[in-house]
Nucleic acid binder design. Structure first.
Lengths: 168, 168
DNA sequence: AAATACTTTCAAAATATTTTGAAAGTTCAA
DNA sequence: TTGAACTTTCAAAATATTTTGAAAGTATTT
């Protein structure tokens, strides 16, 4: 398998993985492409490599930056913008966990809290089952939230730990 | 908020959550509906509650059964099939983790292994970056896989633990 | 101030996914 | 064996999502 074949394989697989986790196929592919590139790429490089339009690249790169896993790089003397992906796989995982927690876990916790304000007769089996299920979902969601919080905090303090070591 | 309003809210929120995690909105809604129902429901009950077609209900219920979080219930003397959701939230979580591991994590690990068979000059920086990134992705994916495996196994042995206690 | 070199936006087009419903299939009782 | 009661399938229709590309916007140089 040549490098280009291998890259194509990986980009395809990453796109498929993305789309089964609710991330658009193309966004995942752009991410994979930047991930395996040894140097930052321009919009045109990406258009060329994935055969997609300028607008599409622009949009997906912006989303990846919103996720905090791709950065804009400006080269002195160049007008064009370059993009590079975070290469530390653990950091990528943490960043995605952090964002999904904020974007998807916290909203569902708020929705569950809302829905708990139901005022009704607890002797009605329908009401009872509902209240109980919601209560259990809340517990589970809060647990997940706290666990992630702990891991993310640990990760960040480890980062600052190594950061400060540089100055010892 | 009345029970019906609360149910509607929850079903909506669950649908939204599902679709941001790559599960079809309707499948998540059917799941939520069964989750808060105190009794098993028929295809027609579900059609009525969510205002969707028979074929749609049939398909989504089948998928939920494939995920192992909804069961078919046959009532003696009734021709119709009833469906009920697993109510134990922790079990639901474990079951989903188990399935996604099988359906999405393991395939990507295989893809990464495939892509590592690239035979090329390691002094080429392009090849080097690629090999390194793939290596790191593999480590991360295998780690995740093993962690899940451990949790699932622990969960299952706990289940068998409590199961056998019944016979003491 | 105008020209150049880019980036961003967004309505329309293309594509992908989901939904429908009627026909085919199945099961069971008479 | 037939027919009634149900479930499943799947091609076509509806809907949702993604993609395009050209126009508008922005920043920099001359």
């Amino acid at each position: 398998m040549t490098l280009d074949e291998a890259k194509q394989h990986l980009i395809q697989a990453w796109g498929t993985l993305g789309s089964s986790w609710g991330v658009s196929r193309t966004m995942a592919q752009v991410h994979a492409l930047l991930l395996v590139s040894p140097v930052p790429m321009t919009t045109e490089d990406i258009m060329e490599a994935l055969q997609i339009s300028r607008g599409n690249v622009n949009m997906n790169v912006r989303d990846l930056m919103d996720w905090g896993i791709v950065r804009k790089v400006l080269k002195p003397g160049e007008r064009k913008e370059f993009f590079e992906a975070e290469k530390d796989v653990w950091k990528i995982g943490m960043q995605i966990a952090k964002e999904r927690k904020k974007r998807e876990l916290e909203p569902i916790i708020r929705a569950l809290d809302q829905v708990s304000t139901i005022e009704a007769d607890i002797t009605d089996p329908d009401v009872k089952q509902f209240a109980e299920t919601v209560e259990n979902l809340k517990k589970f969601a809060n647990n997940t939230n706290n666990t992630l919080e702990t891991i993310i905090k640990a990760e960040e303090s480890m980062f600052w730990g190594s950061f400060f070591k540089l100055f010892k």
